[in-house]
Design a protein around this nucleic acid. Sequence first.
DNA 1: CATTCTATGGATAATTTTTTTCCTTTAGAT
DNA 2: ATCTAAAGGAAAAAAATTATCCATAGAATG
Lengths: 155, 155
Amino acid sequence: MFIFVVAKNIYNGAMNYEPINYEALLRTHQLKATPQRIGILNAMHTHGHITIDTLYSDIKKEFSAISLATLYKNIHQMMDATLVTEVKIAQQKTLYEITKAAHAHLACDRCGSVYDIAIDATPLVAQQSPLSQHRIESAQITFTGVCQGCLTKGA
Amino acid sequence: MFIFVVAKNIYNGAMNYEPINYEALLRTHQLKATPQRIGILNAMHTHGHITIDTLYSDIKKEFSAISLATLYKNIHQMMDATLVTEVKIAQQKTLYEITKAAHAHLACDRCGSVYDIAIDATPLVAQQSPLSQHRIESAQITFTGVCQGCLTKGA
DNA sequence: CATTCTATGGATAATTTTTTTCCTTTAGAT
DNA sequence: ATCTAAAGGAAAAAAATTATCCATAGAATG
Ligand SMILES: [Mn+2]
Ligand SMILES: [Mn+2]
Ligand SMILES: [Zn+2]
Ligand SMILES: [Zn+2]
């Protein structure tokens, strides 16, 4: 398993710093590289995190006949293949993103935007695991606060 | 704002170690203490975390005529009053719990159960905040792993 | 305790979100 | 170029959530 960085995002896949080759990325995950799937990944990459509605209206520009069912079906297939990750945040609509290296999120209290936060949760997991009667393997972290944009703008 | 411990759960409200007085808890949060609301809180407390379906079938035993709309309306009112918290975990149905002192969750990979994990995220937030261009105020943490029950049982 | 007023509950319908079915089309292998 | 399993699209169904309307019941007032 390799890690490569493209446009501030860290995707799992072939080592590569070129513009993302969605076709190869799909095939690597045993999924047929259809134009619709490439469009879905492209929209996800452009937005970073995307709701089903935004994805739908976005992708309709290129595939006017595409169906919501196609989006849901593909998102689930890609999630099964760990190519796409579901991001659920309280009080927010479900978001989807291309699977990246482990990272946390910041959900802005003011504008609702969600940002990636680079963080290594390994120490947290390692520290917590022995304290618990469960086996802890990984952590999903969502920070709440005020994003940079709202900080500079607002009062 | 006080903290008190009842039956392994840490609720915000009046200082008290007695069985939870839901009536008082509701009034403290400026909500009328109706039997239905008391039933909702009781079911939440019994289950720790509860889905809307479980809540519905549970509470119907006492209020056979209760409507799902009543549940949703009340849950949202209680969330607005910070008396109830929504817990969203990837691949899982939305859960609700009575608001407790800050804590993390463990979602078991095997059985899907969700457990409370005592943890103080203050250091994590304090450490992360200066590293980011955003203002980070709090953290929601969900651990993934295998729960104690599945550990003792399974292979 | 009786009166009053407003918030609440329940019935119902409407929306929104997600999944399923069925048939046609297409990606990728041969 | 041909073949076939997988994928797309239309449509309907199912699941989840929210809104509307009115009778009723908390709880404040006196
Ligand atoms: Mn992300
Ligand atoms: Mn909890
Ligand atoms: Zn913001
Ligand atoms: Zn388990």
